[in-house]
Design a protein around this nucleic acid. Structure first.
Lengths: 333, 333
DNA sequence: GTGAAAGCGCTAACAC
DNA sequence: GTGTTAGCGCTTTCAC
């Protein structure tokens, strides 16, 4: 097939053990020999077999990233962060997309990735994944985002507090009939959405405002879903004057729905999103900035530390800050 | 360490070969035994070692996706397509991000991924990667996008023709002083940008319009770069009345720059983008829709076929259609 | 400092 | 149909 360690060894006139050591830069190898072996390997265009190394060492030299969706901007930003943290390490990145957790998936992620990676980053985002439980049973290094797991460390934001900030921003502008576009019904307190919902309720209660159940609609975290949600809200007997959306994408959809009816965001209806994507600036969308790139990078760094057995100072739960950016999509009543 | 095939074999009272066959659903196994083995494996929570299997079979059961950037919307869309094509197969996805090809990368992709995957999808996007050459030397299954490679098949769009369509759209609206925001200087005809530039020139020449070198500026394929480019254009002695941008992101930036000066896209300056991202509809950006999801899915399918040795009907070069969507960012002069 | 040899966990002939 | 056996290509004791 291809050129192996053994080939290099026989050409270089040394043992496979020496080649193995030399190529990995072990200090115990004679510098002359080390250099010679390196040259031979280069000349032969030798590329080692990760599979063989993995089998032998038990390490896979790669991490798995598990996410329900790849087509979300938040995911892309986290992936960017993860990638940058991995740059310069010898770790490879395996991507496993579970799809909507409510659909049963053909092959559970643990079966797929378990022995193939040294650890996992689970981006459960807005949905609690039953797979997380499965994965945590593996007792492998694991870093979670968006959910507090029973095992491993996690990177989080304070969803409840951030949601309070968003809601109070609208209240501060004089709004009282405030609607909520959430992703979907969440019953698990560990889920990001649940916490944000709590925050919304907190802020409303604190301002002595009532939450009208008709003003709470799902938007599936997509642009289309957000647009539909907004349409429902506008069709209500008593439409809202302001809306909190649990993602920028849903807010985009809401803005579109508004415009389609000739309404202007921030004047006729105020809208605030959640995520702080770059495009939100262009759409003049007020939003809660979530540092997804940092989240990804930090999660990756935590995972690498766990894998390498460093009892790092960054283990456990880390909470990152979110900040409100007010733009013209939110205005006084 | 963990439970192995051998453990399952001894518990089930059969040989490892039988377990191996049973677990992979070979027809040559007695149904009763097959079921029994499966049960034992489940009970023991057995998870096979991909490394061992790979070493033994020579197949890695995974593909590598190589891209210079992860933080581009186009990349995300292609990844979505690739992911969906891989769903239901037993192939894993390894992501390798080379970063800007002009920077030297510490570990060349071929060394990293070569023996770890069964084939590659290379998304060179707007930049010609010298790594492609290296990878093609591997003589492994390879599917390219955005570049016509010396080896392997590819998925493409007709960049030159699409660019003609975009430019002629502006010309048809009465514009004659048309600027171009490209990504960066391209000298390689195999590169997408080069072809689009050709198309721009074609359309201008056909309409007997001159291309002012001062009206051709780079935007680095980012929002910020597009904004800067637009600023330069507006600061020119004789600013353009219309602009073609080679990506929606750069067009977003251009729109922002326009707005920052109190100008309205489509009225004061017309702008057309390239890509057709979902958010472009919200920004009322005219654009050339590129079916990135389809490109990704098709590339993945081609690669799988190549890997499995199917001399598929979809091998070689496949060209996908692009379509113009006119919105209010482009208007009559 | 270097080599010999025993695996790592699985698959694929090949016999039975 | 099922078991035996010989690797796949590397790492890693353990001698020397």
């Amino acid at each position: 097939m291809s050129v192996t360690l053994k080939d290099v060894a026989s050409v270089a006139g040394v043992s496979t053990a020496t080649v193995s050591r030399a190529l990995r830069g072990f200090a115990t190898v004679d510098p002359e020999i080390q250099q010679h072996v390196q040259q031979v390997a280069d000349r032969l265009n030798y590329v080692g077999s990760p599979a063989a190394a993995a089998l032998s060492t038990g390490r896979a030299d790669s991490i798995g990233v598990i996410t329900p969706f790849v087509d979300r901007m938040a995911f892309q930003r986290m992936l960017t962060g993860i990638e940058s943290a991995l740059r310069g390490t010898n770790m490879d990145l395996l991507l496993y997309c579970t799809g909507d957790p409510s659909d049963p998936h053909p092959v559970p992620p643990r079966k797929r990735l378990a022995r193939r990676v040294d650890g996992f980053i689970v981006l459960s985002l807005a949905l609690h994944s039953p797979d997380v439980e499965e994965i945590s049973k593996l007792k492998m290094p694991l870093v979670l985002f968006g959910d507090q797991g029973p095992w491993g460390s996690s990177v989080q934001i304070d969803d409840r507090a951030a949601s309070v900030v968003a809601t109070e921003h609208l209240i501060g502008l004089g709004h009282s009939r405030i609607a909520l576009i959430h992703g979907r019904e969440a019953h698990d307190p560990g889920v990001l959405e649940y916490q944000r919902h709590l925050g919304f309720n907190d802020a409303m209660a604190r301002a002595h405002l009532t939450v009208d159940p008709a003003m709470v609609v799902p938007g599936a975290f997509t642009i289309a879903g957000g647009a539909q949600a907004m349409q429902r809200l506008l069709d209500a007997a008593d439409p809202p004057t302001a809306v909190v959306a649990f993602s920028d994408e849903m807010a985009y959809g809401a803005i579109r729905a508004l415009r389609d009816r000739g309404l202007t965001p921030g004047r006729d209806v105020s809208i605030i999103g959640f995520d702080g994507h770059e495009t939100s600036a262009l759409l003049d969308l007020s939003t809660i900035n979530v540092p997804f790139e940092d989240i990804g990078a930090l999660a990756a760094r935590k995972l690498l530390d766990e894998i390498h057995g460093l009892e790092a100072d960054n283990s456990g739960v880390t909470i990152l800050e979110t900040v409100l950016t007010a733009r013209s999509s939110t205005g006084t009543l």
